[in-house]
Structures are given as C-alpha cells and as structure tokens.
Amino acid sequence: MSAFTTTATIAVFGGKLLKLTHESAALKCRMALNLYVPPSTAVKIPVLFYLAGLTCSGDNGAEKGFLNYWAGKYGMAIVYPDTSPRGSNHPGENESWDFGSAAGFYIDATAAPWSENYKMETYITAELPALLYAAYPTLDSSRVAITGHSMGGHGALSLFLKHPELYKSGSGFAPIANPTQCPWGKKAFAGYLATEAEWPQHDATELLRTYTGGPVDLLVSVGTADEFYTGGQLLVENLAAAAKENGREGEVTIVYAEGYNHSYFYVSSYAETHVTHAARHLGLL
C-alpha cells in the first residue's frame, strides 16, 4: 500500500502533476507535495528536487515555475516538497513570514521546541525520497539532482554539499548563499539551532570553503534588480569567493539575469537554465 494519497492528477506538458499527501514520521504531521511525472518511456526516470522559498509551499514551483515544461522535454521527474512542518503550534510559529511555518530552512533544528519536529534536512534527504522511491519504482534513485529558489536555493546548495552521495548536481535560483552573514539566515539559525557553533554546518559558503569532495559545478543565478540581492540577503559572490579560496575557482558559475527581480517571473524565465544544468549531470544530454 502506498504511503501517499493522491488528491489531484493534472495533465501538463504531456505528463502529469500529482498532488500528494502523506504522514511524516520525521516532521510529526501530514505533509503535502507535488510530483511531476514526464511523458517518458524510460524504465527509470531521473529526478530533480525543487525546494521553494520563504512563505511558499510545494505548489509555488509546480504551478508557477515553468520547470515542468523543460522536465517534460528532457524526461525528468520533479519533486516539489513543502517548506516546513505544518500546524505544530509552537509559540511564535506563525508570527513572522521568515521564521517558523513555511520557513524551515531545510535544516534539522536542535533548539527546543523546534527540535521536536522541524527536521527538514532529514525529511528532504532521507524520509521523503525513501517513500517516493518505494511508491513510484520508475523513479531512479541513482540519478537525482537538487535545485531551489531563495531559501530553497540555500537548501539545495547546502544539502548538495553535505550529502554529495545523494545528488548529481546542485543549483540555486537567487539562493541565500551565505546565511550566517545575512539577516534572514541569522534569524533562522538563532531560532532553530542550539549553539552558534552549529551555524557553519548549514551554510553553503562555509561548507564549500572546506569541502574536500570531487568537483561540484554549482550553478547560481540571480536577478540584477532583485531587492534581496541588492539588499545583502543573498551574498552569492561569497560562494564563488569560497570556491576560489579552496582552490576550486571555476566550480561556481553565477549567471546574472539583467533586470529581473526575486519573483516567480524570474524563476520561470530561468527554469530552462537550471533544468538543463540538472539534465546534463543526470545523463539526459
């Protein structure tokens, strides 16, 4: 029996978008997500995880990101998870848009009360994939890539660097690339993590500075009119500087989207860039 309940099946770009729900043991609540299945005859279909940003859910990228079009072209499935546990009712959980509900930052919290169930890293890297690969055996667990937008870009880059055995590629649309040094990241880490010493373990820039694995080929894109880029929240150049410091110059590519802001108009416009990056690493090109 499948762990998932299908609440809707929607035809899109020759494939199907499945709206799913399931019980999460890691997050101790019922979770919703989207799964795009392409029109492919392959026995095994590669998978791209798309992590959404602050205030978002698994619906935003699936419905507004235009990633499904390119995934359908390449024969790639896309998983769109939610951004936090839901309905935990911790004090302060729903008081601000950049912390708590819809703002899980893709880390496992260590500070009470968040440590009870804000375990988004475990959910994204272990629990959810295991359930999906069991329920949908055509998904290829050996060919997986990860991308994301804003907070989700932070999640994609940091999880790729922490779990390189899981992913063939990582990229970020306007990612929070150096969260230990920006207001969003400092607020989240101070709330979710028990000690400041833990912060660098979840920061892509700090992780890359000391990374000892193989070549990473990280792709980052950002709009030049993005108010959060110009306002010092994203700090994407710090990621490239960390690569250079570690002798990995050229392993981070930054694409500047002239005139674009932080919205899904930007994400949908640069979906081809990121899905193609994943497709190349997944052996689809």
Rank of each mutant, 00 (worst) to 15 (best):
A109W: 00
L33T: 01
Y118Q: 01
N238K: 09
P113M: 03
T6W: 04
A25Y: 07
E249P: 00
S142N: 01
A271N: 10
L161V: 06
A177D: 02
S115E: 14
G53M: 15
A62F: 05
E196S: 14
K168V: 08
L139Q: 00
A204E: 08
N178T: 13
T253W: 10
A77P: 10
A242Q: 13
Q201Y: 12
V267W: 01
T125H: 03
V236D: 04
V255Y: 14
G104M: 02
A225W: 04
C56H: 13
V144K: 04
K119E: 04
F228C: 06
A130P: 01
G247K: 12
V43I: 07
A71D: 05
A271S: 14
E127R: 03
A130V: 08
E272A: 13
G75Y: 06
Y69P: 00
T273S: 08
H149M: 10
V255D: 14
L35M: 05
I10R: 10
G259H: 01
S115M: 11
Y229L: 15
L207S: 00
L54S: 11
G104D: 09
Y211D: 00
T122V: 02
S40Y: 09
G148L: 05
E63Y: 11
L239E: 01
A26T: 15
A111I: 07
V79N: 00
A71G: 15
E121D: 12
R280W: 13
N68G: 02
A257H: 11
E227R: 15
W97V: 09
A240K: 15
A3D: 15
F4S: 01
E237H: 12
G75M: 08
N117T: 10
A194Y: 12
S221V: 09
A103K: 04
L234N: 05
Y192C: 00
H262Q: 10
G61N: 02
Q181F: 03
A145L: 01
L219I: 11
G15Y: 07
L132C: 06
H274C: 09
R280G: 13
P113W: 05
A112V: 11
L20N: 02
A135C: 14
K44C: 03
N178F: 10
L128G: 01
A188C: 10
D203V: 09
P91V: 13
Q201H: 08
Y106S: 05
F99D: 13
T125V: 15
L193F: 08
Y167Q: 04
V144W: 07
D140P: 04
